[in-house]
């Protein structure tokens, strides 16, 4: 489900079935990586919307969590941890972060939720007909991660 008024209605009615929260982590960088930063945001958005479409009934896709790349690690970890704690208090049994920012892999254990890291593909360089198989492929990999966690 998405964070929209309609789908939140649906969520309220089916809360016990929606046990997984997905938080996209998106870096914003105005320095030399500005283009790459924007491209990551795009990629993360398209990928998470597709994940949401396929797992609508069990996953709540939260709004993107943006932060400045210049933030130091403790500050970033705190941001992520606050969200995960808040969501767990709301009854989500599984909290996943999804990101293309490799900085998060450095201290994965420091996170409250599970990290899904997917290298960003600059979709703006791809032809329309190649985008879909690419995204499908990524979604399949993410599905495997979810199902493993759900079966634990």
């Amino acid at each position: 489900m998405k964070w929209t008024p309609n789908e939140v209605d649906m969520f309220l009615q089916a809360k016990e079935y929606v046990d997984t929260a997905l938080i996209p982590l998106v870096p914003v960088n105005f320095a030399e990586n500005i283009k790459q930063s924007a491209s990551m945001k795009d990629f993360t958005e398209i990928l998470t919307l597709e994940i949401e479409r396929q797992f609508k009934g069990r996953i709540m896709l939260l709004p993107q969590l943006a932060y400045l790349s210049s933030w130091d690690e403790p500050k970033r970890l705190e941001l992520a941890a606050d969200w995960a704690r808040g969501l767990k208090e709301q009854g989500f049994a599984h909290v996943f972060y999804i990101t293309s920012d490799s900085e998060w892999r450095v201290n994965e254990q420091g996170l409250e939720g599970s990290l899904i890291w997917i290298p960003s593909i600059p979709l703006e360089h791809l032809e329309e007909k190649h985008k879909r198989p690419m995204i499908d492929d990524q979604v399949r990999q993410v599905l495997a991660i979810f199902t493993r966690k759900w079966h634990d």
């Binding site: 649906m10 079935y17 797992f55 009934g57 069990r58």
Partner: peptide, 26 residues
């Protein structure tokens, strides 16, 4: 589109239930 809460079903993806459409969500 699964008629429960709308996840995507797929053919033959659950080993314990071959030749069915299976919804991974519930």
């Amino acid at each position: 589109v699964c008629k429960h809460l709308g996840c995507a079903v797929a053919w033959n993806t659950d080993k314990s239930n071959p030749n069915h459409f299976f919804c991974p969500c519930h």
